[in-house]
Amino acid sequence: MAELQFREAIRAAIDEEMAQDEDIFVMGEEVAEYDGAYKVTEGLLDKYGSKRMIDTPISELGFAGIGVGAAMNGLRPIVEFMTFNFAVLAADQIINHASKAKYMTGGQVNVPIVFRGPNASAGQLSATHSVSYDAMYAHFPGLKVIYTSEPADAKGLLKSAIRDDNPVLFMESEQMYGLKGEVPEEDDFTIPIGKAKVKREGSDVTVVAHGKMYHVAKQAAQQLDKEGVDVEIIDPRTVKPLDIETIVKSIQKTNRCVIVDEAHPFGGLAAEVGYLIQREAFDYLDAPVQRVTLPDTNAPFAKNLFDEWLPSPDQVIDAINTVTYRK
């Protein structure tokens, strides 16, 4: 095991894959000469040169589409968005082209592309820079969506994403880039797409949380541990395809569930997981499933409002108290 920062784990995944496959290249804003807006791609220009590390202008729609076209024509692009909040401008290429080209051509083309970058909020950046997009893309058939919470998952899943012959969206967080974690050093460490992980075992309640929210859930679990509540945390890691089985298995044991999601409540991952639980585990539930999400408002700038807006460990504790009928 090696201790790596999140950004180093992502970089290692890209680096190892680029070293093995000449057709992989990286493009995006500030990825090359600036070494990445968040230093994820630091050093890769020196190693792979300007043919394979490409700085783009601020033209999200254009470079995402050039990526899709290049992927159709045999390359394996890794397209970085400075954040998925800016990928909104590229949505036509992701949603109308990357996800549909194979289907529309009756299978004549593949689109082996990775779109990656930070997702959701990163402190007080106000309304346009704070939205969580994983569930939105997961809505569309033809896209795989990953949003990990720890360096090891990030490395293993990004390597799988780069090797995948389908379009994959791989999401990160500005606020997690400095987070350290143990990453297996074994040769060719990968994690299959579509497998959740039990990150903390417990018997009283199942908490489903991914991305940055995993850490919020973890804090809540540690706090409740002191009060004798034994929380199991499942990190889906891959949003789509979603590993509902692991979640159901946990609920069969705990009979209670809270979903924590850094998205708005309407039609998000929490809504989907909640539906699946009632379909697959209805008879096992001892309480209605609860969720902790953002409110149905835009992100405010003011510090106090922003703190209020973002899901907190206290809200998770409240939700757990509700499903366990403790308070």
């Binding site: 909040n85 800016f86 909104v88 401008l89 950046l125 106000s126 346009t128 700038f301 003011a302 409002l305």
Partner: peptide, 24 residues
């Protein structure tokens, strides 16, 4: 306090504001 540095505005005096999505 809703906007911060990127979203100064004074619509009454015909300044429609600052916007954070490049080109938006």
């Amino acid at each position: 306090g809703k906007g911060g540095s990127m979203h100064f505005a004074n619509v009454e005096e015909h300044f429609w504001g600052g916007y954070g999505i490049v080109g938006g």
